[in-house]
Design a protein around this nucleic acid. Structure first.
Lengths: 146, 146
DNA sequence: ATTAATGGTTGATACTGTCAACTTTCTTTC
DNA sequence: GAAAGAAAGTTGACAGTATCAACCATTAAT
């Protein structure tokens, strides 16, 4: 039963992970879709982030981020103000509510992470992360012209 | 820049993988969405598979499989016939076209896989697969009551 | 000053996943 | 054997996610 191609294995894992996350959020009354949580996380990370920055950081389309941010603002979790140095950019910052929610999310995620890593050695986990990174980088690299 | 949680790393990798796949398919004139390809793969694997079996194997909702299969049939890649032993079940088999396409898909996937694994030792890859499997199993396992 | 590039937004559309209801066909139980 | 229940498949409705192209407003480049 281990005849899984890397792609299948990946699908399976991410699918299971997302499902676990969704359930955990629901159990904790966190009523946000996963992508919203991830965006919020990005906004909480650095001060004065922009839509563009988040889109790049998570390798996502900026239009998608725009929409997610719009909903985060509507939910009172994020606020935006025009960058004084650049009239086009909007600087995003979490509201206190946003930070508080982020706090809870962090706890939930840590728990889920621990559950996922259950029975695995720290080295194994570290290697997994390293491999994941390396593979993603391989794929993102523009294809070598044949 | 390596402050990625496992969840983020996973998202990034699967996203990159899907993108690479989609591009590869397009380059090879394979005009099927990824989920369709995966379902077709499942159908080509064992003889006389059913919607149910595929849904279970790939941990997906049977309604989704039903729809995918419907389109695969419409595309002439799969055919179905009623199971002589069970009037409810429909046995799915690939058409010659389906098999031929699968052949090409396999090549494309292998290439993509190699690109993804570029620079990684076979042991590392094997370990990655093992870890992926273990983690998915951890998550699928019903949560241990705390 | 004109052109080009950038940050953000919107619209359109496709793909993916989830849930619930329903039909048809077994299977179980009496 | 008939009624109740379970299983296989289908359909509808919907939420979430991703992609692409077009579009303002503002800034940078020439």
């Amino acid at each position: 039963m281990s005849s899984l191609h890397p792609g299948d294995a990946l699908h399976r894992l991410l699918h299971a992970y997302k499902r676990a996350m969704r359930e955990a959020y629901r159990a904790e009354q966190i009523a946000l879709p996963i992508s919203h949580v991830r965006a919020l996380k990005g906004i909480c990370h650095g001060r004065g982030t922009t839509v563009q920055a988040i889109a790049e950081r998570m390798h996502r389309d900026k239009s998608q981020i725009t929409r997610v941010v719009k909903e985060l603002r509507a939910a009172g979790l994020v606020q935006s103000q025009t960058d004084p140095h650049d009239g086009r950019a909007r600087l995003l910052t979490p509201t206190p509510e946003g930070r508080a929610l982020m706090q809870r999310v962090t706890v939930v995620e840590r728990r889920a992470g621990e559950r996922m890593m259950h029975g695995l050695s720290p080295q194994a986990v570290a290697q997994f992360l390293a491999l994941t990174e390396a593979m993603a980088a391989n794929l993102d690299r523009p294809e070598i012209a044949p």
